[in-house]
Design a binder for these strands. Sequence first.
DNA 1: AGGCCGACATGAGAAAGAAT
DNA 2: ATTCTTTCTCATGTCGGCCT
Length: 271
Amino acid sequence: MEHPIFALRAGDMQVRRYERNGHTLTVLPGATGCATIHDKDLWIYCISQLIEAANRGREIGPTVRFTAFDFLATTHRGTSGRAYERMSEMLRRLKGTVVETSIETAGLRERRGFGLIEGWRVIEKSQDAGRMVAVEVDLPKWLFRSVQAKRVLTLSSAYFRLRKPLDRRIYELARKHCGEQPRWRISLAVLHQKSGSMGELRRFRFDVKALAESGNLPDYLMAIDLQRDMVTFYANGPKGKLAEVKDMLAGRPNASLKAHQKAHSARSRRR
DNA sequence: AGGCCGACATGAGAAAGAAT
DNA sequence: ATTCTTTCTCATGTCGGCCT
């Protein structure tokens, strides 16, 4: 996806419209607002469920079934009653947000519209109102096809640890545009556009500067040239040693989970 | 332009109750 | 006993508005 579909802010009711060489994309929020970058976690979760199932040699279809608890836990969310409610809101926003595209080629214009998910189903136990037993999400066909074709971008598990919506978006962009190349250079104005941030440029500049200085962006280093208003991303070798060591120091999921399991089994052996 | 505040929202984690 | 679910509390995010 070239243009930012997901909003950075909750309850965003703005209609966004992007245009690039005879190619327009319109994002129409549903009644409860536009799907946010956090809602995208549900997408990513469903996709990874499918990929995992496929890797185990199981038959996969566009419908993904899972428990609410598992989703909340694996995306590092809380599991409060409010978190469950928010999950329903997520489904509603994903379903309600409509994306329309229009492509012009050789004098023909084709327009299409689609939701971010086809539909959803939450199965609750009736005698104990409100308990979500299982959730089913129907992914749109085009998304399912790109999963089958393995054309989905893999994200570092550190992605879920990125709290700031803007940081997440910038990481995605770096991942997409810089990828494995040693570096990627872009003007702040264009990055601002690509990010989908609705704030003013000066504020965006301030936020990007903060991100660069914090060094919180996984896999990449950022340098800002304030004179020319350019940002450069340097790939830190996503598979390199340095990244692994940094993961460990930062106590990121994979490293820390293994360490925790080790400690745990040592404890049980002593007992 | 740069920076701060606050409205409205998300997020983490502890502790405890419920289900299996 | 273990796993799931809820409630509570505190910390942090975006961005419009406001001040300097």
